[in-house]
Design a protein around this nucleic acid. Structure first.
Length: 134
DNA sequence: GCCAACGTTGGC
DNA sequence: GCCAACGTTGGC
């Protein structure tokens, strides 16, 4: 099992939207590195959802329900989408500020490569964020 | 609103 | 195949 974090600007699609929709095809990613991670995702893998721009915090847990297939939003066969489903909100959102202040999380892409929108987390990193959320 | 970082595009 | 120009992202 692998652990992931996906970023979304809540102005375009938020955790609340996912909860309302129950599940969604995570499409529109146009970055090769992110695409490659999406292809590795397997049904059942936990996915943390992070809100960029405004609140800058990890707000909920989702899980992968369908593995990646060609992005239905485009004819360009280079891009893929996978389906995720909302599992539960975090009791306390974990802010970017808190993540930055935690040495155990210093290596995650969220900090090292802030523009990447889909990234893997180690089990330790995932557990750490869960612990920080209470 | 600004701007640094960085990925992509396209001319050569 | 290189690299300058450009567009986008996202933190501040």
């Amino acid at each position: 099992m692998n652990y992931w974090l996906v970023k979304s600007d809540p102005g375009s699609y938020s955790w609340g939207d996912l909860v309302k929709d129950k599940k969604t095809w995570w499409d529109g990613v146009r970055n090769y590195q992110a695409r490659n991670f999406m292809v590795e995702m397997q049904p059942g893998d936990p996915v943390l959802v992070y809100h960029s721009q405004k609140t800058k915090d990890v707000v909920g847990i989702a899980k992968v329900t369908r593995e990646a297939r060609q992005d239905p939003a485009t004819d360009d066969e280079r891009w893929v989408a996978m389906e995720i489903e909302a599992v539960e909100p975090l009791k306390n959102p974990v802010t970017l500020e808190k993540i930055k202040s935690e040495p155990a999380l210093a290596e995650i892409h969220l900090i090292k490569n802030s523009r990447l929108s889909v990234m893997p987390l180690s089990k330790e990193e995932f557990d750490k964020i869960m612990e920080m959320s209470g």
